[in-house]
């Protein structure tokens, strides 16, 4: 996938690019409004990451531009402002998602994939990973065609790990993914362990191989080997 990262904080820009490139994506970078326009004029992307506070122009202008040009790229706003108004404005101008800084790169990656999947809605809305099939519409998990019952949180978590397959996801990122921002649950890291254990058990019981790996006690990886 081709992804354009419009972000004026260069370290963050590079970090995002590093993570996403590791996922097999091609990343372009822009740190000003002018640069961003230049890139957008020259290339088509699958997804655009947009920081709203750029030094030489409001990020929302880029949304206006994309809308005017009838561009079909998925746009994720990444903003330090957790403002409902800005969120609504951004989404109504055609952004597909709104991610508040600071975020985990795995979260960003999962959201990018979700948008790209949604954009290419002609295809089937499911993800396959060897014997595991995740149906996104029905929110069902099938192993070798057999339905595996999962709670909503387990489903979300599995999808999160599959979206970031091969990457280590920290417990912190996993907690934030299922509990969201508004619950003051930062000290419930270890609780993720129970969830992963349950998912693993359900999958292996249904005949799947165990793809989860515990890493350094920090997090887990969903991986081939």
């Amino acid at each position: 996938m081709k992804i354009l990262i419009i972000e004026d904080e260069l370290v963050l820009q590079r970090s995002i690019a590093q993570y996403l490139t590791g996922e097999g994506n091609i990343c372009s970078m822009a740190s000003t409004y002018a640069q961003a326009l230049e890139r957008l004029n020259a290339y088509q992307y699958d997804c655009i990451l947009l920081d709203l506070t750029l030094p030489d122009g409001e990020g929302l202008q880029i949304l206006n531009y994309l809308k005017r040009m009838n561009r079909t790229e998925g746009v994720i706003i990444i903003s330090a402002r957790n403002s409902i108004d800005q969120k609504i404005e951004g989404l109504s101008l055609g952004a597909d998602d709104y991610l508040i800084k600071p975020f985990h790169l795995s979260e960003l990656n999962a959201r990018i994939l979700a948008i790209v999947r949604r954009k290419s809605a002609h295809g089937e809305r499911h993800i396959e990973f060897h014997e595991i099939r995740i149906d996104l519409d029905a929110k069902e998990v099938l192993v070798n065609g057999k339905l595996v019952y999962m709670t909503k949180k387990e489903f979300d978590l599995l999808l999160y790990f599959v979206s970031n397959k091969g990457k280590v996801i920290s417990k912190s990122a996993a907690v934030e993914h299922i509990w969201g921002d508004d619950s003051d649950m930062v000290d419930s890291f270890d609780f993720i362990y129970t969830h992963i254990k349950n998912i693993r058990k359900k999958l292996t019981d249904a005949g799947s191989r165990d793809y989860f790996q515990s890493v350094y006690g920090i997090g887990y990886k969903f991986t081939e080997a």
Binding site: V11, P102, G217
Partner: peptide
């Protein structure tokens, strides 16, 4: 403070992907 935090977070996320971390590094990361 949110942007520097985002930088720290993203650096940590990238560091985590490294395959050469020792047990102690892991604990530090936690």
């Amino acid at each position: 403070m949110m942007t520097p935090l985002a930088v720290i977070n993203s650096k940590l996320d990238n560091m985590l992907q490294s395959n050469v971390l020792g047990k102690e590094d892991g604990e530090t990361l936690v």
